[in-house]
Design a protein around this nucleic acid. Sequence first.
DNA 1: TTGGCAACCTGTAACGTTTCAGTATATTGA
DNA 2: TCAATATACTGAAACGTTACAGGTTGCCAA
Lengths: 348, 348
Amino acid sequence: MDRRVTKKGDDDTSGKERPTLKTLAFMTGLGVTTVSRALKDAPEIGAETRRRVQLVAKQIGYRPNRAGVRLRTGKTNVISLVLNTEHELMSFVSDIIYGVTEVIADTPYHLIVTPYSRSQDPLDPVRYLVETGSADGVIISRTQPNDPRARYMLERGIPFATHGRTDMGLVHPYHDFDNYAFAGEAVRALAANGRNRLALVTPPIGLTYYRYTVNGFADALSEVGASEVPFNTVSIDQSIEQIRMRTAQLMRRKDRPDGFVSSAAAATLAIVAGIEDAGLKLGRDVDVVSKQSSELLHLFRRELLVVNENFRLAGSELAKAVLGWIGGADPGTLQSLSTPSEVLPYRG
Amino acid sequence: MDRRVTKKGDDDTSGKERPTLKTLAFMTGLGVTTVSRALKDAPEIGAETRRRVQLVAKQIGYRPNRAGVRLRTGKTNVISLVLNTEHELMSFVSDIIYGVTEVIADTPYHLIVTPYSRSQDPLDPVRYLVETGSADGVIISRTQPNDPRARYMLERGIPFATHGRTDMGLVHPYHDFDNYAFAGEAVRALAANGRNRLALVTPPIGLTYYRYTVNGFADALSEVGASEVPFNTVSIDQSIEQIRMRTAQLMRRKDRPDGFVSSAAAATLAIVAGIEDAGLKLGRDVDVVSKQSSELLHLFRRELLVVNENFRLAGSELAKAVLGWIGGADPGTLQSLSTPSEVLPYRG
DNA sequence: TTGGCAACCTGTAACGTTTCAGTATATTGA
DNA sequence: TCAATATACTGAAACGTTACAGGTTGCCAA
C-alpha cells in the first residue's frame, strides 16, 4: 500500500485535507486542547495566543467538524421543522421556512424538515427527533389546545416553539397570529358595510386557532349586533370543491348570509366561486373578508376585503424563540403574538 | 459534562440510556465488532448470530448514532435542498419539499434546507456544503445552461440532481418539466381558438427552461403560422405590479396580442389584471394559457386555459435521482422529463 | 531560600462507529 | 497425523471534538 503524502501523523500541512484542531495545533505549535479553548474564548488562554489561534483559524478557513462536536457534546446544531405534508391548500410553508432560515443564517444551525402524513400520529416525528437526539430544537405547527407534542417535549426538556398557542397551563415559547382580533376586525368591517348576517369559514376544528377565531367572531357579532348564519359543515382544510359546493348550497337559501369571514385565501377562492355559482355578486349581494399570506387575493376579485398574515415573520419569530430557549432564556419570555393588519379594501 | 450515574462501564443495561453497539454487545455476549457486522449482514457472521443480534437490536429499538457513523465514515445521511429564498411569487417550494420527503421517508436520510439570497453567489451554499461535507447529496434548482454549481459538484464528485437541465456537454441526473412541449401545446391551443398574435411571458432569463420555453413557443408559432408580439420587458420573476402594468400598457396598443402564454400562475394573475385594466375581456378579446402547480387558476377566471405542472413529482424524481447516484447508479440513467398535461379548459 | 499561587498550557480519555489486523476453533486434504 | 484453510469472532485504533486532571513557569510573600 502506497501511502500518498504522509501518514497524516503529527506533521500535517499538506493543504488539501480539511483542517482540524490538530492542523491548527501543529501550525501554531500549541496543543489541541489549547486551540479548542482559544477558539471559544476560554478565560485561561493568554490574550495573544487567543488572537494568534483565531487568526490562523480564519486564514485557513477552519470550521469545526459537526460530527465531532455532536458526538462529543450531543449538540447537533440542528433545528427541526415538523410539517404535515398534506396541507392540500395554498402553501405558506415556504414562507415559514424562509423566515426560519433568515434567522439561523448566521448561526451554526442547520434546518431539517421532518415530515409526517395525516395518517400518522403527529407525535411520531417528535418522538423520533427526541429519541434519536436529532435536533437541539423543534418547531411544530397545527397546535392544539391540549397538545401531546408540546407536553412530551416539555417532559423531555427539549427546547421547542409552537406555531399557535396551547391551553394546558404549561408555559412554552410560541408565536401566534391574533386570530381573535382578526375575526373581530372582520366582523366589524362587514358591519360597517351594512352586513349583519354573517357566516364564518373556520380553521380546522381541534386546532387552537379555531377557538380564537370562533370566539373573536362570536364576541364581535354581539358587539355590533349582527347575527351568525351557521356554516359548520365547512372548514378551511376541506377540498376546494367541497367548500365551493357547500357555499353555493348555502347561498341559494333564503336565509343566506350577506357576509363571510374566511380564515384562508385558498378557501376564499372557493367561497367566491360558490357565491357566483349561486348567481350572486360579490360586493353587491355579499362581502367577504379573508386572511391571505400573499398579495394575490385582490387580483382575484377586487371586491374582497383582506387581512394579511405574514408567515415569514412567523418563521422568524419561531426560530428566534427556539434559539432563545436553547440559549438559556426563560421560555415565558419567548412568546409573541402578531397583530392583524387593518381590513384592507382594494386600492387601485 | 455531568452525565450519568454509573461510569457507563461494561455493565450497561440500565434501561434509560439510548442503546449503542456496546449495549448490544453486552446483551448478546458478543464483541462490538461482531454486532456492527451482524447488523449490516456482513458475510463472515454466522447465520444464527446474525439473527440473534438483529432480533435484540429490534427489540430494544437500537438506532445507529448518526454522529458516530458520520465521524467514522464521512457519511452524513443528509440530502440538502438548496433554495433561493426570494421567489417572491407563488410558492411551489413546499411541493418540492413534500415530494422529496416522500421518497426519503423510509431511508435513513434527513432533508436539510440550505438557503441563499439573491444577493449571494448561488455557488456559495453549494461550496459550503461540499467544503464542510454537510451532505451526501444535493438538489439544486434555477438551473442554467452553463451552471457553475453543477460543474463544481461534478469536479468534486459529490452526487447531485438539478431541477432543470444544463447544456454543458456534461452528464448528471436531472428532472425537468418539458417546457418546450408546454409552450408548443399552448400555442397550438391558442391557434385552435383562432388566436394568431401571441405574446409569451417567459421564465427568468438565464435559466435553462427559459430557452426551452422560448424555442417551443417560436417553433410552434411557425408551425401554426401565428406571429409573435414581443413582450420582452416582462418575465415571471418580476413583481406582480410590474407585470400587471406592462401588460396593461401592451394591451392598450393597437397591435396588441390576442393570446398569451404564461409560464407561471402568479404571473398569470397579474396578466389577467393587466388585461382587464385595459378594459378588455378574457375569452373574448384575448385567451391566456398558463402553467399552474395547483388547481386554483380556474377558480380565478374560468376562461383561462391551464397546463398542470406537478412539483411534488419533481421533488420525488429529484430525490430518487440523488439517492440513485449515491447508491452507485450511472448518472446518465437518472434523468427524467415530465410531459405536460393537455391544455385544459374549465370544466364546470 | 522556599512555599504558594496564579497564569497558561497540555495529554489522555471518551463520545459511537467502522476498519484493520488479527486469534481461536473446527474442518479439510494428503 | 499435521499442516493448511475456512469459519466465526475479537481488540485496538481512528475519525474530531471537549472535559478532566494535571503540568510548567514565573512571581511574590514569608
